[in-house]
Structure formats: C-alpha cells, structure tokens
C-alpha cells in the first residue's frame, strides 16, 4: 500500500489535557506507516466559542491553519471533533462564498498566505477508514479485543450537521445510525454495544456556564453504555473524552447514580488491537482507570 501522508492539526487538548491522545495518534500512525507532518504554526480553532464572539476573526484564523496544510499539498487531518467541525465549517463557507473568501484572503495576504481550498479536512477516524481501509486494519490486528463489549460514543461534531461532514469523507454517515466507529470496533475484534446515547451530546461545551446540564448529559451517556453491558467506551473526540473520563463525580451526583467506565480514545483502541503497549498509548493518563489491561 502507498504510504499515507497527512498534515496533522493536533488541536489544543492533545498537547495539554489529553496527552494520551497525541501519544496514541502517533503510535497508531507508526503502526499503519502513516507519515504525519504536524502543523506547528496552527492556532486554536476557536472551539465554537471564539465563533460566538468574532465570526470573521475565527474564519481568518482557521483559514490560516488550512493554508499551511495547503502549502504542504496535504490533506489536513484533525483528531478532535470540534476542531473538525470548525475547520470544515470554515472551508465550507469559504469554498461556497467567493466574496467571503476574498475578504479572508485579503487579511491572510498581510502575512503572505493564501487560502485556496485545495486541501481536504478530515477527522483521523474517517481518514483511516477511507484511505487505509477497515479490511487492512483488520489484517494487522494482533491482539483482537474479542472479550470486550465496547460502547462507541460518536461525539456531536463528527456527525452533525451531516451535510457538512458528507463533504469531507467518502462514507455517508447516517447521523442517527452512524457506523464508522462501530465498524472500527468490529475491525479491532471487539463487540459493539448499541445504546441510545451513543450519538448524543456529552455536555462539554456548557461545562462552565451550565454545569448541571453538562453533568446530566455526561451521566446519561455513561449510564446508557453501562446499562447496555459495556466494558468500556470509545470516542474519537478528546473533549467528549475529558467529560466522560474526568467528570464522573459530578455526573454521578447529577443523575443520582454512581457511574464510571474506562473510556478509550479511538486511537488507543486501535493501538491496543495493533499491539501497541499501554505506555505508548498513554493509558496512565486516564482519571478513570483503564483496568482491563
């Protein structure tokens, strides 16, 4: 297979509160022989909060990030659902609106950059499914996760709004019955768990201003997975991961029931199946212990 090469937009959490996500991304990339060119010049995507404050500025900053991927002539890979949403949304708006694109490029020209619209923006989950292939991953599995019931937690910003995401990847993901993460679990040898909350919101974005709402959403997600007999959850989004992994106390209090499940990043799950060590995947960085290794 031709060696894959991507421009990696790490996002902020991978470098701070979820170091294990960065570690496992790189570990999986090594196993799959994918070359990652890290976009060290990139800024924060604004996480849909800068967008609430200054829409135009957030477009300019995200267009700048994409422009660096374009300079490398590479597809931009994201490893956070919210980075994916905001970057892909910027791309969508600029590609659809030449007048807006010209206004943004006028600003980028001040620093010698141009947004052209030549690089696709895709989440790592879909990149490995589209470009590497589930069958290929399956062939490389050395430690199938066959004894585990794994609950996929998709994360809002990878599946909604569906029209936007259909532009970035080949599979037409059904926002009400998504399959990508389920398929990946099966490719890794695990059993997938179906539960109502798997496509629901984790509450991360209202954590500060509406802590109760956020905690109820987190609690409901973990409880839904638990009641469906899951041994662990897996998510492609580091923000969902932060909520589900570190906020179990407030979540339990909010729903009046003790809940806690080990939560893996999608990359950690793939890494385990491909034979990476727990150290390589940063499993010690979880607040809710990953106790099955």
């Amino acid at each position: 297979m031709k060696k894959l090469k991507y421009a990696l937009f790490t996002g902020c959490t991978a470098k701070q509160s979820t170091p294990e996500q960065m570690m496992s991304t790189m570990a999986v990339a090594r196993k799959l022989n994918i070359e990652m060119i890290e976009l060290t010049e990139a800024s924060c995507c604004g996480a849909s909060h800068l967008q609430d404050y200054d829409d135009f500025l957030s477009l300019v900053l995200n267009a700048r990030n994409i422009a660096y991927a374009e300079k490398h002539g590479l597809t931009m890979v994201t490893i956070c659902n919210t980075c994916q949403l905001n970057t892909a949304m910027t791309k969508h708006r600029l590609d659809k609106n030449p007048e807006l694109k010209a206004r943004v490029n006028e600003k980028l020209a001040e620093v010698g950059l141009e947004y052209k619209g030549t690089s696709n923006v895709i989440h790592f989950l879909y990149a490995i499914i589209d470009d590497f292939g589930l069958d290929e991953i399956k062939k490389m599995v050395v430690k199938p996760l066959s004894q585990f019931n794994i609950a996929p937690f998709y994360g809002c910003h990878n599946i909604r709004p569906s029209e936007l995401h259909d532009e970035s990847h080949k599979m037409r993901e059904n926002p009400y019955k998504p399959t990508s993460l389920d398929d990946l679990i099966i490719a890794c040898g695990g059993m997938t768990v179906d539960y109502e909350e798997k496509t629901k919101c984790c509450g991360f974005h209202v954590e500060l201003q509406a802590p109760n709402t956020a905690a109820v959403l987190t609690g409901a997600a973990i409880a839904g997975a638990t009641d469906s007999n899951a041994d662990m959850m897996v998510t492609p989004c580091p923000l969902c991961h932060l909520k589900l992994d570190t906020q179990t106390k407030s979540a339990s209090k909010a729903i009046g029931r003790e809940v806690a499940l080990p939560v893996l990043h999608m990359q950690q799950m793939v890494g385990l199946a491909l034979g990476c060590s727990p150290e390589e995947l940063g499993l010690k960085h979880h607040v809710t212990d990953v106790n099955f290794i």
Binding site: S43, C44, H49, L50
Partner: peptide
C-alpha cells in the same frame, strides 16, 4: 460580563498570547 461571555472572549486572549489555548 459573566462566565459564559468571558469563556468566549477568553479564547481570544489565549490565542493572542499563545496561538493555542491555555486551558
């Protein structure tokens, strides 16, 4: 001036200072 609005504006301050977020 409340936690929600400061949360939005805080992104700008962080990006201005570091490019990335200071969580």
């Amino acid at each position: 001036n409340n936690v929600a609005t400061r949360h939005a504006v805080g992104f700008l301050h962080s990006i201005k200072k570091n490019g990335v977020l200071d969580e």
